[in-house]
Every structure is written in structure tokens, then in C-alpha cells.
């Protein structure tokens, strides 16, 4: 088995870009510390590459040709696409692993149709997690995008199937692979509602995720998600994919709804690879 680590985390740009506006610095730092511990735990598994399953925000993919799933296949990437001062992360070059990507994509295609991309500009969906997990940006990354922005979106059961395909692909290569899903849970980002968080909905979702309860995780629909968890809630697809890939029990290391300036319930979770 070559999947050596699985986890999930929040990626909202406010986490780094509006750090100075968080009213309770101690609580904020508790979140940051949990995020960094996740990175240390990930690196302790000695991954050769980190697959970041993110939901990007029109950095690379637009409604002229929107893939439901895309996987990067380059030897290096660049990011952030956002203004570095706005995001609080300097522009940098991030190593990729094109040849490994190619083998993984080839295997995924056996069961799931994905697009590949030989260029990819990382936005906050990848850069914010990397700034905590691999702060030197020195571990090869393979970016994955699930379209959670421009409907029609891939159904949840397909996100699950994609996670299963990702696992089969990881198992087919000798390299040690870590996978991290980033996004959601409930939030209404980039709207006047920014900061609204449905904490009970989040905690119920995280309970389902921690139990890796496939039926419960697929028992959502986008109409309800939009109403109860906002358009940001569509990003649970990344958490579902990780659960399908890891197959084990999840452990939520940190969750708070008490930093609304970050526009999301701040989450750090790891999952046993089974």
C-alpha cells in the first residue's frame, strides 16, 4: 500500500490573509498549531508526494471548459495566483512530479474520467494548506481539482468514486503518497454573509466523516447544502474523496466556528489509512 497519510483541512484565504484581524490571537494560534502538527504528522510518514484535493476558484478552470475533475501533471507549479500581500503568502515555485502524476492519472482513468493539466497556478485552495503543511514548499505536490464552483457540479457519489479511484492509483505506484482534502465545510465565502458558519451542520458532517460512513456522507443533496451550508458547502466533495481514498476512521484534531473573520469553520482532521 502506498497511500501513507490522509487528512483534511480548511483553505479559506482569510486564514493567512486576515490573520491580523482575528480578535482572539490565542485561539487563532491554537488553530495554526494544530494545522502545523498535521504537517509534521504528514511528513513523519515520509511522503514522496502530496496530493492536494482542492476545490479551486477559477484560477485555472473556467466555464468555457470546466472539468469535473482535473489532476496536475507538471514538474513545477507556481502560486499564489492572488496578490501575495492580500493572501499573506509570497509568490513561489512549488515542485511537482510529472512522471508520477502521469502514472496516477493513467490508473485513475481506468475507472473515472479526469482531465489532466500540464500547467496549473495554485490559488488559496492549495497555497493556504501548503503554507502550514510544507511551509518550505519543498515537497512535490500533485494538485487535484474537483469543480465545486461552477454548477452543474459532479454528484457526491461520483466524488466518492473518484476517491476510490485515487486510492487504487496510489496503490498502483511504489512511491509513498499523502492525500489532503481542502475546503468547506459550511461557509458563505466572498459574499456579505462571509463569516456565517452553521456549526451544528459542520459538527454533524464531521461526525459522519469521522465514522467514514459512506451512506451518511452521500445522504446530502446540493439544494439542502446550499440552503444550510452555503455555496462553500459544495466543497465537502474534497472531504468525501479523502474518506473514500483512506477507508479508515477520521480524527478531528481541531474545529472552531469562533473565528468568523476567516469566513469558515476552521478544521484540521486526519484519517487512518485502512
Amino acid at each position: 500500500m502506498s497511500l501513507v497519510f490522509a487528512g483534511v483541512s480548511s483553505h479559506a484565504p482569510g486564514i493567512t490573509g486576515r490573520s491580523h484581524l482575528a480578535p482572539d490571537a490565542a485561539h487563532r494560534d491554537e488553530f495554526y498549531a494544530a494545522y502545523r502538527r498535521m504537517g509534521e504528522a504528514m511528513m513523519a510518514t515520509r511522503p514522496d508526494a502530496v496530493i492536494i484535493v482542492a476545490a479551486e476558484h477559477f484560477a485555472n478552470f473556467f466555464m468555457n471548459n470546466m472539468p469535473a475533475y482535473a489532476v496536475g501533471m507538471a514538474d513545477h507549479y507556481e502560486g499564489p495566483i492572488e496578490d501575495p500581500a492580500w493572501l499573506g503568502i509570497p509568490k513561489t515555485r512549488i515542485p511537482g512530479a510529472a512522471e508520477l502524476s502521469k502514472r496516477i492519472i493513467t490508473e485513475i482513468l481506468q475507472s473515472t474520467d479526469v482531465a489532466y493539466a500540464e500547467e496549473w497556478k495554485f490559488d488559496h485552495g492549495v497555497m493556504v494548506p501548503l503554507s502550514f503543511l510544507t511551509p518550505k514548499f519543498d515537497t512535490p505536490v500533485i494538485p487535484v481539482n474537483i469543480n465545486c464552483q461552477g454548477p452543474p457540479l459532479t454528484p457526491l457519489h461520483r466524488a466518492w468514486a473518484f476517491g476510490e479511484a485515487l486510492r487504487r492509483a496510489c496503490d498502483s505506484v511504489p512511491e509513498r503518497i499523502a492525500v489532503v482534502g481542502t475546503g468547506g465545510i459550511s461557509h458563505w465565502p466572498a459574499t456579505p454573509d462571509s463569516g456565517k458558519i452553521n456549526e451544528p451542520w459542520d459538527r454533524d458532517f464531521l461526525d459522519r466523516w469521522s465514522r467514514n460512513d459512506r451512506a451518511a456522507l452521500l445522504n446530502y443533496n446540493d439544494v439542502d447544502i446550499y440552503r444550510e451550508a452555503g455555496q462553500g458547502g459544495f466543497e465537502i466533495r474534497t472531504f468525501l474523496a479523502v474518506a473514500a481514498a483512506a477507508r479508515g476512521q477520521g480524527h478531528v484534531w481541531f474545529y472552531t466556528a469562533a473565528i468568523p473573520i476567516f469566513a469558515v469553520g476552521c478544521t484540521v482532521g486526519v484519517m487512518d489509512v485502512a
Binding site: 492572488e82 496578490d83 461552477g150
Partner: peptide, 10 residues
């Protein structure tokens, strides 16, 4: 879409 708009704002 807000994800486009907030970057124009920045």
C-alpha cells in the same frame, strides 16, 4: 461569482 469578485476587489 464571489470567488472572481473578491480578487477584483483586492
Amino acid at each position: 461569482n464571489g470567488q472572481l469578485l473578491m480578487h477584483l476587489s483586492a
